[in-house]
C-alpha cells in the first residue's frame, strides 16, 4: 500500500540542504563584512606589498619605488594626504598646481618609505581593532616589529569608492600629515604657494 508521506518528511529531507545554504550564505556575509573592515584592507595591502618585494634582495630604492607605487596608490589616498599636509595652502594653488603638488608629495613619501625598507628584513604587523574617528573615518592601531624594534603605528583610513584608503600614518604619535604641514606652513609663509612646489621639486632632485 502506498504510504502517504508524513507532512514533516519533505522539509526534514531538505534540512541538510537548507542548513548548508544558510551556512554558506552566513559565511559569505561574514566574509563580505570582514572584507569591508579597514583592518582586513590593511592586511591585504601589506601582504601585497611584501609579496611584491620578496626575493628582490638587490633592488635599489628607485626600482623598489617604481614597483611599489601602483600598490601604494591603491591603498593610500595621496590626494587626501597632500591636502592635509598642505593645509590652508592647498586652496592657494590652482587645480593644475594641486595636481602637481599631489604628484610631487606622493613621490617624496614613496621614496622615503622605500629608501628605508629592507626587503631582507622580516616585517610583522599586528593590527588591532579600528577606532571610529567620526565623519566615517577610522584609525587602525598596530604594532610593527621590524629589525628587532617594536613600533606603535596608527593608520588613519577613510572610505572611498574602492574601499578603505590610508590618508595618514602616525608613528609613535608623530603624524606624517601634521609633521609636513608644519614644514609647508613655514615655507608658504616665507615664499608663497609657489615656494612649496619649488621646495618639493628641489627635494626630489
Amino acid at each position: 500500500m502506498f504510504r502517504k508521506p508524513h507532512v514533516l518528511s519533505a522539509p526534514v529531507a531538505f534540512l541538510p540542504a537548507v542548513a548548508l545554504v544558510c551556512t554558506l550564505s552566513a559565511w559569505n556575509v561574514s566574509a563580505l563584512a570582514e572584507a569591508d573592515t579597514p583592518e582586513v584592507t590593511l592586511k591585504r595591502g601589506l601582504a601585497e606589498l611584501l609579496g611584491s618585494v620578496k626575493g628582490r634582495n638587490n633592488a635599489n630604492p628607485v626600482e623598489l619605488a617604481k614597483r611599489l607605487r601602483p600598490i601604494l596608490e591603491r591603498f593610500f589616498n595621496f590626494e587626501s594626504l597632500t591636502r592635509r599636509a598642505l593645509g590652508p595652502g592647498w586652496k592657494d594653488l590652482n587645480p593644475e598646481q594641486q595636481k602637481k603638488a599631489t604628484q610631487l608629495f606622493s613621490e617624496i613619501i614613496i621614496r622615503s618609505y622605500t629608501s628605508r625598507f629592507d626587503p631582507n628584513s622580516e616585517v610583522d604587523v599586528q593590527f588591532s581593532r579600528s577606532v571610529d574617528m567620526g565623519n566615517g573615518r577610522k584609525e587602525v592601531p598596530a604594532v610593527a616589529r621590524y629589525q628587532g624594534n617594536a613600533v606603535s603605528v596608527a593608520y588613519r583610513v577613510e572610505p572611498g569608492p574602492e574601499g578603505w584608503r590610508v590618508y595618514d600614518v602616525v608613528i609613535e604619535g608623530v603624524s606624517m600629515a601634521s609633521n609636513y604641514r608644519s614644514q609647508f606652513d613655514s615655507i608658504r609663509q616665507k615664499g608663497g604657494p609657489a615656494a612649496v612646489l619649488h621646495a618639493m621639486e628641489d627635494k626630489l632632485k
Partner: peptide
Amino acid sequence: KDALDPYIAVREAYSSYRTN
C-alpha cells in the same frame, strides 16, 4: 632625510612624540 625643513621636522616630531 626626507624633510623639506629639517629643523621644523625634528621640532614637530619631538613635540608630538613627547605629547604621545
